[in-house]
Amino acid sequence: MSVVVPPGRRFVRSRPVGSATRGTTNPNRLRRMDRWIAAVHAAALVRSSDPVAVDLGYGAAPWTAVELLARLRTVRPEAEVVGVEIDPARVAAAVPYERAGLVFAHGGFEVPLPGGRRPVLIRAANVLRQYGEAEVADVWARLCARLAPDGLLVEGTCDEIGRRHVWVALSPEGPRTVTFAARLASLDRPSDLAERLPKALIHRNVPGEPIHAFLRDFDRAWASAAPYADLGARQRWIRSAASLAGAWPLVGGPRRWRQGELTVRWDALAPRG
């Protein structure tokens, strides 16, 4: 089934759910997130009978949706992407970039797809930073309810050129993992990623909260691994991750660590209270 949005239905008649973002975007900004998605969600993409993904809140330019399609098609050649934006002007500006398997539509957290299709992936990058922490759970629940049974919601934040990124991965049942990713050559210490924590965690980086304890331990492991810096930042990161593995429930192993990533189970970092 190909994604087709008839011209008369491209703009929703009712008010979309949510608010417009600043729209900041750059080519390759989300490459780290996309690379991770293509690796860890490959099996679901391959077995899906309807491999449609949503780039939610793609911004003022459609680069991230175009790139997402290309990266997913390395795993599933039939993959399709719908870029969903709450700002009608951004949708109109993106229409010239449509191609086979890629369309753009007006909408928000209701994730409008033709025919009630349920996406195997929703990527919501840099969308929730303007919302309050108390609003996150409701947004997550709304988006997860739109997923296919084996679908994945990836929600997180990165800097303007994609050097530092932290995201939460959620199944239809709720949050599963938190991933920290960086261009390691630009990293002084792992806690530099704190400024890119998603909204659910960024205000919890204070003593007594798990995310604060994790970043503290990560910095200590990084400092202890300083002798490996002569072999490169990647080796130092890998050694730091190996040190953390005994105290924190890491997901994945050296193959992902080599990419400048570290994934932790959500329940170990979830806010208290």
Rank of each mutant, 00 (worst) to 15 (best):
P6Q: 04
R9T: 11
R10W: 00
V12M: 11
S14I: 04
R15V: 05
V17W: 08
V17H: 10
G18E: 07
G23V: 10
T24R: 06
T25D: 06
P27I: 04
R29K: 04
L30M: 03
L30V: 02
M33D: 08
A39F: 05
V40K: 04
V40F: 02
H41I: 11
A42W: 00
A42Y: 01
A43N: 04
A44D: 12
A44T: 04
L45W: 01
V52A: 07
A53T: 10
V54K: 04
V54N: 03
D55Y: 02
Y58L: 00
G59S: 11
A65D: 03
E67F: 11
L68N: 04
R73H: 05
R73Q: 13
R73I: 06
V75I: 13
R76F: 09
R76T: 06
A79N: 06
E80G: 11
V82S: 13
E85M: 09
P88R: 15
A89W: 04
A92R: 00
Y97G: 09
L102D: 00
L102C: 14
F104K: 00
V111I: 15
P112N: 13
L113P: 02
L113G: 01
L113Q: 00
L113E: 01
P114M: 10
R118P: 06
R118M: 08
V120E: 01
R123G: 12
N126G: 02
L128Q: 06
Y131V: 03
A134T: 09
A137R: 15
D138M: 13
W140Y: 10
A141C: 07
C144I: 06
P149I: 05
D150L: 15
G151Y: 03
V154A: 12
V154Y: 00
E155K: 00
E155C: 07
E155N: 05
E155W: 07
I161C: 14
R163E: 12
V166Q: 07
V166S: 14
W167S: 15
W167K: 01
V168L: 10
P172W: 12
P175A: 15
R176M: 13
A181Y: 01
R183C: 05
L184P: 01
A185C: 04
S186G: 01
L187H: 11
P190E: 11
P190T: 11
S191I: 00
E195C: 14
P198Y: 03
K199T: 13
R204Q: 12
R204K: 08
E209K: 05
P210M: 01
P210V: 12
H212R: 12
H212Y: 13
A213H: 10
R216K: 14
A223C: 08
A226Y: 09
P227E: 14
Y228Q: 14
A229T: 08
A233R: 09
Q235E: 15
I238A: 03
A241I: 04
A241Y: 08
A247F: 02
W248E: 02
P249W: 15
P249S: 07
G252V: 06
G252H: 01
R256N: 01
R258V: 11
G260N: 05
E261C: 08
V264W: 02
D267Y: 03
P271Q: 09
R272W: 00
G273L: 05
